[in-house]
Design a protein around this nucleic acid. Structure first.
Lengths: 244, 244
DNA sequence: CGTTCTGTTGATCGAACTCAACTAGTGTGG
DNA sequence: CCACACTAGTTGAGTTCGATCAACAGAACG
């Protein structure tokens, strides 16, 4: 059984009390479905909600004035989507669905209740958010200082690693769920060049491709080529367990 | 009097109680000075502390295996430096000083005390951290989808805006405090090309330069050229003030 | 007073972009 | 049921932006 709820994710790092567990279950009191291509919210929308992805896959991106798109992150089940709502009344990014998806929703008052009734849980949620920040930092380094080949490789590795963490049985050969244009918008490349880089990785026997599926053949070399770091490994929330 | 403490920064967005104010004053119980060029902590160091910059200027960066450096953010007085300590026992970035600096320090147990005794304050700290995340997102978009000229312009604007927020009297003509190599490491460019872009911006009468000082001549055009967004404008923590 | 650091400029190179053409799959509506 | 449109992927040719290499000037510094 794949673990794809936020509670399970948290549970990997801190031992949750029964009360915390039920609080999490009651947290996202509403649900919303989004079709592939649909938007959950748009940049600059007035947004007062937080979302947790339950099923499917989302992405967040911004559109620049020249019309080009930069994908900021991919959002997988168990991820909290819109923590920027903590500081902004309007969305700083557009969230849209890469696959048919379902999100759980809750508002700021629900967040305030968690803070009041389960401060340790609140702290754990904020702490885990640092993981996405670390991933965002990695993306900055990737865009600023690595080659197109490395950037494409790192997207492949990121998706695979995060999927496998949700489901240890996630296969070595898998459908990315991204078009080459989407990979390009995440890596700051054109779709055409993404295509060439995929071909190159294939020619180098680092990956194989067949019918829309990718296989990571030589993972060790791929990790080196991509300068990839898995940011979930290394998480340590043990300080939250000490008596407060 | 420039406002450069974290308490003042928070105070711009939420009304702090007397108790919260004193808690903040007592928070960073230790101080540490770092000379220009010195490191506060290195990537992968075991770090259990949080830092708040009191005076000076820091940067955070990572070094890739090929030796190239990517600067992730510039840290100005009042910024909390190392919130990744919330989730990681080891530093994910190197922090070093761009100018002679002084930081206040506190550890995880102090953070836990804030959470216990002043949960609203804790929430405000976490919320404000979303601003740096938004800035990091902007940097991703900048690196992925804008020209060298735009990226250099956006560094100029960012430094100026953040300095002016600390000190409304911050002059239009100012010393950046960054070498061209540092600008390059922040923007994913070489020092040589940064130089050319500065010259181009100068030729276009968007900026002027004299003796290490920069003047932003045509700010409106510069903002457009850089696709720049000031992420402090738009912050809304009002939901924290409602009765919890 | 050499040495190192930072900035500047020119010449050349190469990685990634642009434009264009073509294929294959997938609807979809007449 | 098929013609047509539309999307995603693929490949080639030519272009461009930014990198690399190199040389030099001025400032800072021990």
């Amino acid at each position: 059984m794949p673990s794809n709820s936020f509670a399970d994710r948290l549970g990997e790092h801190v031992v949750l009390t029964e009360g915390e567990r039920t609080a999490l279950q009651l947290l996202d009191d509403r649900e919303r479905a989004v079709r592939r291509g649909g938007a959950l919210c748009r940049e600059n929308d007035a947004v007062a909600d937080f979302f947790i992805l339950k099923r499917g896959m989302l992405m967040s991106f911004v559109i620049l004035n020249d019309g080009s798109r930069q994908i900021l992150r991919f959002i997988l089940p168990g991820d909290i989507v819109s923590l920027s709502t903590l500081a902004y009344a309007r969305a700083t990014e557009t969230i849209s669905a890469l696959a048919d998806s379902v999100v759980g929703m809750f508002d700021r008052s629900a967040m305030a209740r968690v803070l009041r009734d389960h401060p340790r849980l609140y702290a754990a949620m904020m702490a885990l958010d640092q993981v996405t920040r670390a991933a965002l930092s990695d993306r900055v380094a990737s865009l600023g200082r690595t080659s197109a080949r490395a950037r494409v490789a790192s997207v492949l590795l990121e998706i695979r690693d995060r999927m496998r963490r949700l489901d240890p049985a996630f296969p070595t050969s898998f459908a990315l769920g991204l078009t080459q244009e989407e990979i390009g918008d995440a890596t700051g490349l054109t779709a055409v060049h993404v295509n060439r880089m995929l071909r190159q990785l294939e020619d180098e026997r680092l990956i194989a491709r067949a019918g829309g599926c990718v296989t990571l053949i030589d993972e060790a070399r791929l990790v080196r080529a991509a300068h990839y770091v898995d940011r979930m490994t290394g998480v340590d929330l043990s300080w939250l367990s000490s008596p407060s």
